[in-house]
Amino acid sequence: MRILIIDEMHESIVPLLEELGHQVDYKPEVDRKGIIECVGGYEGLIIRSKTKMDQELLEKATNLKFIGRAGAGLDNIDIDFLDFKNVQLFHAPEGNRDAVAEHAVGMLLVLFNYFNRADQQVRKGIWRREENRGEELSGKTVGIIGYGNMGQAFAKRLSGFDVEVLAYDKYRTAYGDKYAAESSWEEIFQKADILSLHVPLTTETRNFIDIALLEKFQKPIYFINTARGELISFDTLNEALQEKILKGAVLDVLENEKFGTMTQAQQLSFEQLAQRENVLFSPHVAGWTHQSYEKINQVLAQKIKRAF
């Protein structure tokens, strides 16, 4: 098959696909207009998130047999239209799940132990031990929402910390394992000290973490979001932190990650969030390690090989 790659990928992707007998055109510089003009000549399309795979574009892909998404999220793709056109869709959460899990644990430990503040103080010759007295993860209860690739990997990484892990997944049954107990929202509301999100962005999950939901927790919690920023708004985070419903937050993703396109209200709300010492940010890099960059290619190549 002829395969078009429209985003920056690890250099291994081209030889991996060529070894399977495919003809590969690597064009990460191509813009949306260029994609629409040429996509009809390809049977395969490999993407990240540069442009929406919407009906306008997909209608031009008259010979398309598959799309490979180099990553986990599918919110940029018109899945219903792909089903209608009988186009297969592959994504690669197996490639970056370990990176996401390690990142989530790492950021939580940084937040608990004031690593950022302590490091900056010592660099300036400031020695404040009591101010930087940390919090132990051991003995706490972690609630995981969404127990797929990412949720399972996170639970596995927590297994050495002497924590209780409760997992809730609306779309699975009998998913409890040695790393997490199958649970309900009600049990998580009762017991959780930490809440971590591992669900995709859909019409159902957009802004589903709101104040009404957070108020159901029986004690203040720490919050982790390495999934999608649109699951919770800046305003909800600020209100929950102000009211001490949340003790702290770890955010690898934001409601709007394009700072230049923020509304005035979003900008003000983000600035308020950014002033809080109990909030820790990273720029959507939880799954963005050197190793995951290559592993994603391997996962996609194997899925394409099995399908064709």
Rank of each mutant, 00 (worst) to 15 (best):
L20T: 06
Q23H: 13
V24M: 07
V24L: 11
Y26A: 11
Y26H: 10
P28Q: 12
E29W: 13
V30G: 08
D31R: 12
R32A: 10
K33W: 07
G34L: 13
G34Q: 13
I35M: 15
I35W: 06
C38E: 15
V39N: 03
V39K: 02
G40Q: 05
G40M: 06
G40H: 04
G41E: 09
G41V: 07
G41S: 09
G41A: 04
G41T: 06
Y42R: 06
G44I: 06
I46V: 10
I46P: 00
I47W: 00
I47M: 04
R48G: 00
R48F: 04
S49P: 02
K50F: 02
K50N: 09
K52E: 14
K52P: 04
K52F: 08
K52D: 14
D54S: 09
D54E: 09
D54H: 09
E56W: 07
L57V: 10
K60F: 00
A61I: 08
A61W: 05
A61H: 05
T62P: 02
L64F: 03
L64M: 05
K65S: 10
I67C: 00
G68I: 11
R69P: 01
A72P: 05
A72G: 08
G73K: 10
G73W: 05
D75K: 06
N76W: 02
N76Y: 08
N76P: 02
I77V: 15
D80C: 06
L82K: 07
D83P: 00
D83S: 14
F84L: 14
F84C: 12
F84K: 15
K85V: 01
K85I: 02
N86M: 03
Q88I: 02
Q88V: 01
Q88L: 03
L89H: 07
L89S: 01
L89Y: 03
F90L: 04
F90T: 00
H91L: 04
H91G: 01
P93A: 11
P93S: 11
P93R: 06
P93V: 09
E94Y: 03
E94L: 12
N96I: 09
N96M: 11
D98A: 13
D98C: 04
D98E: 15
V100E: 09
A104W: 02
A104Q: 07
V105Y: 05
V105K: 03
G106L: 04
M107N: 08
M107A: 10
M107R: 05
L109R: 08
V110G: 00
V110Y: 12
F112R: 03
F112S: 02
N113W: 07
Y114D: 13
F115K: 08
F115I: 15
N116M: 11
R117L: 14
R117P: 01
R117W: 12
D119I: 13
Q121T: 08
Q121L: 09
V122M: 12
V122W: 09
V122I: 15
R123Q: 13
K124E: 15
K124I: 08
G125Q: 02
I126E: 14
R128S: 13
R129Q: 13
E130K: 14
E130F: 14
R133D: 04
R133T: 10
E135M: 14
E135R: 13
E135I: 15
E136S: 11
L137V: 09
L137I: 12
S138G: 10
G139H: 05
G139D: 04
G139I: 05
K140A: 05
V142Q: 02
G143N: 09
